[in-house]
Design a binder for these strands. Structure first.
Length: 535
DNA sequence: GTGTCAGTTGGCAGA
DNA sequence: ATCTGCCAACTGACA
């Protein structure tokens, strides 16, 4: 140990990685290695990740996402070691481990990326209080989103932009967003005095260790199609940026939900974990497009980034954004409690091959196309099963690599016509929709091998095949593949009527509520509480 | 208040 | 193949 530094007390700056698992465009991380004490000396740098061993209770994540996280941690550790430091993985809960770390490491500064999700805010507020108690300065930086959601609100006169178009026009009126900052080539040498570079206490857990800890069986994992980490994120980004024509012509609704290879970039998991910076992605797109003719929001690639910003902005300022009750923007719908149908949907056993193939791809691979999400979400909620979008949200949160709190809730409300989207009479057909882009059902054959031998004519509707054909294909409906859980053409019209009633009742609830709050102006806090149901 | 218009991605029949 | 109108009719933004 270096005596002088020990005498100086090894003043430390801690950068806390949570999301934002990258070194490129990481302003909070830069603060931590550039910061100096009163005598102009850099602090020693400790980049940490806190791995909560009880996480499973709080975060509903499946094995695929734990794998993605583990790979991202390994990648981060490698990159940090190339810079002369390492990633310190701390086991425990943030509010439990920080007081000890503050003392043990003589921490003077704690930096991390701002997180707008409610559970993260609560966690971070708690940590900030602990830091204050220990005389540790805390710095948070906005870098998970392109725009600071607070500034978007301010630019919109203090209120939330409630439509996508409104959002686009608001950010269009704002100054150009922050430019991404490059990853450091090297770190100040004073940051690198360290005794713990080889201390296994702080090692990234192996995949087996992590999965076992979380109660999963590592041998049940399917092959990894989307490895986590910043390097893979940047590689994948550049792979797509090479094709300028494709970038300029990109229109989301024209991409296929059921191609065998993804028809879109699959950068969403990297965005979710912050392996890829949204700002970097944004300015790379601007660069590639240059002055060429190109598609525009909402359908363009930049338009896709705006959708993310939009849901982050609304999500950050709407109480109970991920719930129906107590959510002021959400239509109040009397969804059914139907555990059997939910179970069938969750496990890809609804008897509708297109729906089941999507749900099986989701479970196996952790990613499905955006329009495939539309199809299964509409089916679960307003289209067919009449089950709450909150149930679907929970399944997506477990199985999607890119499960993102704001976008998951926002999109589920959209698809169930509970908020943002209101044309509930437009219902996806679980049979017809997939045929548009995959007439012969290759996608179904891949994910539902028991149906592989069905003729094209019946692959989307195996129940309509004559018994002899079912037998010849080696898959009898009701024996080897489930019967339809509902008859779409019977239920969807009834569901439209029920949606219409739910809209009327929600509207009535809202007006009676605003009337009430006018009458009882002394208790305005009642405004967002559950509305009474009016018949 | 009232009217008009647009809204990332519906399905279907008929031309 | 692509376009049209129809189905029955939603909301938020804006004038």
């Amino acid at each position: 140990m270096d005596k002088n530094n020990a005498d100086a007390g090894h003043e430390t700056t801690v950068h806390w990685f949570r999301k934002g698992m990258r070194l490129h465009d990481n302003p909070a991380f830069r603060l931590s290695y550039e910061a100096k004490n009163g005598s102009g000396k850099h602090y020693e740098l400790k980049p940490i990740y806190i791995l909560d061993p009880y996480f499973r209770k709080y975060i509903r994540a499946g094995a695929n996402r734990w794998r993605f996280l583990q790979q991202s941690l390994v990648d981060l550790d490698i990159t940090l070691r190339q810079l002369g430091t390492r990633l310190y993985v701390i086991r425990g809960l943030p509010h439990e481990v920080f007081p000890d770390l503050f003392v043990k490491w003589n921490v003077k500064l704690l930096t991390f990326e701002l997180d707008t999700e409610p559970y993260a805010r609560e966690r971070d507020n708690q940590v900030e209080q602990l830091a204050r108690k220990h005389g540790v300065k805390v710095e948070q930086k906005v870098s998970h989103t392109i725009y600071n959601t607070e500034l978007v609100l301010r630019a919109n006169g203090g209120s939330v932009p409630m439509t996508y178009q409104k959002f686009v026009s608001v950010v269009g009126s704002m100054p150009a967003p922050r430019r991404p900052i490059p990853a450091p080539d090297m770190l100040p040498s004073e940051c690198l005095i360290d005794d713990d570079l080889n201390n296994p206490e702080f090692d990234v857990p192996t995949l087996d260790e992590l999965l076992t800890l979380k109660g999963f069986n590592p041998t049940e994992l399917k092959p990894c199609l989307y490895p986590g980490g910043e390097k893979e994120a940047l590689r994948r980004l550049e792979e797509y940026m090479k094709n300028k024509t494709w970038v300029c012509k990109f229109e989301k609704p024209n991409t296929s939900p059921n191609s065998l290879k993804p028809s879109t970039t699959v950068l969403s998991p990297y965005m979710k974990f912050g392996c890829l910076s949204a700002s970097h992605f944004f300015y790379r797109l601007k660069e590639v497009i240059g002055n060429s003719p190109h598609s525009k929001p909402p359908v363009s690639l930049i338009g896709q980034l705006y959708w993310r910003e939009f849901y982050y902005t609304v999500g950050a300022s709407t109480p109970n954004f991920d719930k129906m009750v107590g959510n002021s923007i959400c239509c109040q719908v009397p969804w059914d409690n139907n555990p059997e149908a939910l179970e069938a949907w969750t496990n890809g056993k609804t008897g509708y091959p297109f729906i089941d193939a999507i749900m099986r791809q989701l479970r196996d691979e952790g990613w499905i196309h955006h329009l495939a999400r539309h199809a299964v979400a509409c089916f679960l909620t307003r289209g067919d099963l009449w089950i709450s979008w909150e149930k679907g949200l929970a399944v997506f949160e477990e199985l999607l690599l890119d499960a993102d709190w704001s976008m998951n809730a926002g999109n589920w409300m959209w698809l169930s016509a509970s908020a943002f989207f209101h044309q509930f009479f437009r219902v996806y057909s679980p049979v017809a929709f997939g045929k548009k882009t995959d007439k012969s059902g290759d996608y179904i054959r891949k994910y539902i091998p028991e149906l592989a031998k069905y003729p094209d004519q019946y692959i989307y509707e195996p129940w309509s095949a004559p018994k002899s054909i079912q037998e010849r294909a080696g898959c009898v409906v009701g024996v080897h593949y489930p019967k339809r859980v509902v008859v779409h053409e019977d239920v969807y019209k009834n569901n439209i009527t029920k949606m219409s009633l739910a809209y009327k009742s929600t509207k009535a609830g809202k007006s009676s509520n605003s009337k009430k709050s006018r009458d009882m102006s002394s208790s305005p806090d009642k405004k967002n509480i559950k509305k009474p149901k009016l018949k």
